[in-house]
Computed example of a mutant assay.
Amino acid sequence: MDLSKPSTEPEGTPAPAPSAPSAPSAPSVHDAATMIGTPAVAPQDAVPPQPAAPAPAPSAFAPPSPSPFGAPGAPGAQPYGQPPQQSPNPWGPPAGGYVNMPYPGVAAAPQNNGMAIAALVLGILSVPLGFIPFFFWGGALLALVGIGLGIAGMVQASKGAPRKAMAVAGTVLGVLGLCAAGAGTYFTGRIVSKIDDQVNKGLPPSHSTPYDDEYDDEYPSPSPSTKVDVPGKTSALPFGQTFKYDDGVEVTVKEATGYAPEPNKYDPDRPKFAAKVTVTITNNAKDKVELRAALPSARDDKGLESKRMYDFKVESPFSGSLLPGQSATGVFAFGLPEGTKAIQFEIAPGIGKYDGAIWSGPLG
């Protein structure tokens, strides 16, 4: 320190801190040339770096900057409309794009043509089922469905689906199934006809169905026998006689008397002559007899059926039930042509097990 020069630093100012040793600088070109034995070249005067001028602000009318993917058609340019290719680094910028990759789409699923398989299966089943009697309708139904599926399968095959031969085979088998169903219908009819023939052969001729003419030769008429006369059945009983049934019920037609009914203004067609018939029924059976079912009929002496008259001043028809051991009397009126001399009268004490008995005779 030189004491002859006055110090310009004020007293009490701390001395500057010693600076850190600087890093050794790289050898210059001169030093490198000296080291390898070449003459050193005097370095030019170093020009200090000048500060960079600030970039001008972009103008609103400036042309657009080039695309980061390059101009269309240029080598390495990104194809138009394709997403950028992902960089191997997920956090890095995208790469050039999907190179040589098509636009992603949905691939069409291969067609299976299941209708052709179903048509073949249904056609195979319809043929044997159609021949079975009483089940031919099932074969016909399967055949119709098989034909429909076969035609649909052939349409699918024409559009590129496989199994065209199966669709054709299923359609052909469906047609054969319909033919088999027709044969099954014929067999069913024959079987039903045979069953009907056997049933009719087991019936007596009186109970045969409209096929009686077909079996006339198979049922010969009974041999003639001695005819037994049963009054009231095969011949008419005279008035006043009694017909007795097997169970003990007795019916007696006491008399038939002619009379002239009174005119009725409400019945202009009322007959001018009529007959009233008196009937008595006696129940000697073990069960009661329903008299309400005892309905009579009559014919005149010319065989014409007479119309029953509901003449309440004369008639007294049967009603209710007749218990065992009891008797009941009823009166019936029938319109007749004037001049009738005799009538035929028929009545049954009930329906079912009782047949009508017949009386005839002159009018009293």
Rank of each mutant, 00 (worst) to 15 (best):
D301C: 05
P349C: 03
S306A: 15
S297W: 11
D300I: 05
W359I: 04
D287G: 10
V331G: 01
S297I: 07
S319K: 12
G356W: 00
G339N: 03
V279I: 09
E346C: 02
T329Q: 11
Y310E: 14
D301M: 05
V331Q: 04
P337G: 08
K307S: 15
N284S: 12
I281C: 07
P349N: 02
N283W: 10
E338N: 12
D311G: 00
Q344S: 09
A285H: 09
K286A: 15
S306V: 10
D301F: 03
I281H: 04
G361M: 10
I343T: 03
L291G: 08
S316A: 15
D287Q: 14
D287K: 15
E346D: 06
D287V: 13
A328T: 06
A348K: 01
I358F: 03
F312R: 09
Y310H: 14
A298P: 00
L295D: 08
A328M: 07
G356D: 03
D287I: 08
Y310I: 11
L291F: 11
E290H: 14
N284C: 06
T329P: 02
D300P: 00
K286R: 15
G350S: 12
P362R: 13
W359R: 05
L336G: 01
I343D: 01
K286W: 09
A294M: 06
K307W: 07
K286C: 08
T278H: 08
P324D: 07
A293S: 13
N284F: 05
P362S: 15
T282Q: 09
S306M: 15
L304G: 08
R308E: 09
P362T: 12
M309Y: 05
S360M: 07
V279A: 06
T280A: 14
P324W: 12
M309I: 12
A357G: 11
F318S: 11
G325R: 14
G320W: 10
S321Y: 15
Y310N: 14
A342G: 09
G339Q: 06
A294T: 06
G350Q: 02
G352S: 02
G352F: 00
E290P: 08
K341G: 06
E305S: 13
K341L: 04
F318D: 07
P362M: 09
S319D: 10
A328H: 05
K341F: 06
K341M: 05
P337E: 10
T278Q: 12
K307M: 10
A348M: 00
S327Q: 11
D311R: 00
A348T: 01
D311K: 00
D311E: 04
G330K: 04
F318K: 12
E315S: 14
A285P: 02
K288E: 10
V314P: 00
F318C: 09
I358N: 05
I281Y: 03
G364W: 06
R292H: 10
E315Q: 11
A285D: 13
Y354R: 02
S327K: 15
